[in-house]
Amino acid sequence: MNNENEDQRITDLLRADNEQPPKALDDAILKYAKSSQTENQNVEAKNKKRDWKPWLAAASVVLVMPLLWLMSQNESLIQSKETSVMPQAAPQPSAKSMGTPALEQRNEQRFEQALESAHADFVDDEQEQLNEEDKITVSGSRIKSALDEAQAEPAAYIDQFEQVMEVESQRSITGRMIDHESVEANKALLKDELKAKKRTIKPSNMDPLMALEYAQFGRYLEQGQFDLADQLLTEMQENWPDFDYEDMIYRLAIAEANNSES
């Protein structure tokens, strides 16, 4: 008991000293605790942002696919535009609105201008155009000299003009040669991909109405009513466009072939 009391007195004496850390240390430690909490929250916020990243990636893929498809469409549009615009570069006024001599004169002028431009480019930059794929540029002096030459012997340049136009029609708006094969290949790829996204016709995928139509289609095939089956197939394609009807088309074709054989 005496021992316990004395121990307690030593403890009291020790605590009476009550030595404390300096205030600067207190502040540093409390500040560190606070900053670590903020840091944790920031890390958590970052992680939350990171959670969105897969969704953003998926969304961007969904956006990019139609864009690629549109771009390929645009490429073919540009090509068709170039082909259609080049031979008749300037719009021609109707014959009714102008007198015949004036019309002839104006047409002649336009033809000459087009000829001059083509001739100038052909003569000066023929090799560059074909090999380096540069854009056609026309300077005033070149127009003048080309005009003189064209006036001297216009018929000689008509063939050259047509050749140039043919070459130019193969160029895209960027001045590069259009690779038709790769454009077609890309289109085919995109079509396949778009098709691949279509839903397979299965009882679990179909709504009740579609299931009824599908059953009716089967009955038409059994009964040999191919016209009705074909009509129903067309209607189904219109009403449920996100399904893949290849299998049904195949079934119809087989049924028709079997029927014609028998």
């Binding site: 020790l14 000293d17 850390p21 207190d26 409390l30 605790a33 606070k34 909490q37």
Partner: peptide, 30 residues
């Protein structure tokens, strides 16, 4: 409480804990 990231009292909990033990820890080390 200090461990809870979204608890608004977490910092205050630490301050309380620090105030309780700073003396003994400091004396133990010194």
């Amino acid at each position: 409480t200090f461990k809870q990231k979204h608890d608004i009292n977490n910092q205050r909990a630490f301050e309380m804990l620090y105030a309780r033990h700073k003396g003994p820890f400091y004396r133990f080390i010194t």
